[in-house]
Design a protein around this nucleic acid. Sequence first.
DNA 1: TAATGTGAACATTTTCACAGCA
DNA 2: TGCTGTGAAAATGTTCACATTA
Lengths: 216, 216
Amino acid sequence: MRTKNSKTNKISSLTIDRLTVYIRCLKRLKAVGVSHIFSHQFTKHLGISAHVVRKDLSQFGQFGNISTGYNVNELIKSLSKILGVDDNQNIILIGVGNLGRALLGYKGFEQDGFHIKAIFDIDDTKINRVIAGVRCYPLTDLQDYIIQNNIKIAVIAVPAAAAQIVADEIVKAGVKGILNFSPIMLKVPESVKLNDVDFVSKLETLSYYVKNLKEE
Amino acid sequence: MRTKNSKTNKISSLTIDRLTVYIRCLKRLKAVGVSHIFSHQFTKHLGISAHVVRKDLSQFGQFGNISTGYNVNELIKSLSKILGVDDNQNIILIGVGNLGRALLGYKGFEQDGFHIKAIFDIDDTKINRVIAGVRCYPLTDLQDYIIQNNIKIAVIAVPAAAAQIVADEIVKAGVKGILNFSPIMLKVPESVKLNDVDFVSKLETLSYYVKNLKEE
DNA sequence: TAATGTGAACATTTTCACAGCA
DNA sequence: TGCTGTGAAAATGTTCACATTA
């Protein structure tokens, strides 16, 4: 479909997705004191075949050692660098409803190098307050804030009706990556990367498999 | 990888994923009064090519009319039936922390045919209370509840350390589909379908694309 | 004409096979 | 021997081309 953007597009998005899985697995192994891992051990931990692991990694360089496999610590560093999560990155969260608040309370972002620097809402009772350690700004400040703080990644957790408006604004202000929690297919320019977190859809696919299991 | 389970496996999981996207799009169109749609209009709404739409749908039957395209209402019904979301389905939620509470407050589940019938937690201050309209039971009741109420789909929103234990329990009790919000690669039998909702991973892939965009 | 449904061509992804090395 | 890295083969998924129909 796309042929330009050679740098970005020659690596499959499936590979990039798996890199995030490898890095999480490696961090857990490191935490329990594992220093080296062979590709076939990923199969045991993740259910991903050793061939795929080696193919994925080989696209970014040679990280393995024939006798000792991959050095866990080194590979974490290398993959972090590839993904651009090797040093802390400021992101913003738009929408502080139930879900937004849950995301604020979630420790996983900080642990993996993402810092929610500011939150935005339309609700006067939240604006200018500090929620879970992060200051809440009015939506009217959104574009200025993005420009002044050079924000590149934003999380959208506003209701469906507002999501496209917010997306248009932040894209105009320079955001290049959007994590979208609203159940709407957002339209963004080709130059912006959009990732949807759609758990109702995931429930529906579960439903399909459960239903078709029964028939056998 | 898998060759058995012919019924389930001959339809690609990519197709099933897209069915959920079609159905959401159709519901939105129905809400604004659209009664018929041509396959090429999905391209405009969803960015999915008309060929893919027709191929996907044709695997389940002939839903289209050459002169009028697809009847929106009929197609919603047909796809709902295929996915098994045509009538309400009871599910349970395990873990009522920040995220669990947000999920409880989320209206999207009910709208799409999923009813959270019970919630489970280990925290005494929550047990036997009604939270967001749903009764919270102790984790010790989990397996009995699943068996007695014939629960087939469960949502796991417990901390990472507890997730695998919970997964093992519910699988033993007969759950066939798991929506997992914990940042752990759960191990489940082949006969159980596992879907992960992993937003940190999605943030990391965003980071990759944003970083590689800058280099051009 | 313009749409759906579908077999064939093309592209991508995964799996296999093996060279090179400790 | 048993591992990594990698080109080739197989499997899977997407796009194209067109027969059919209103």
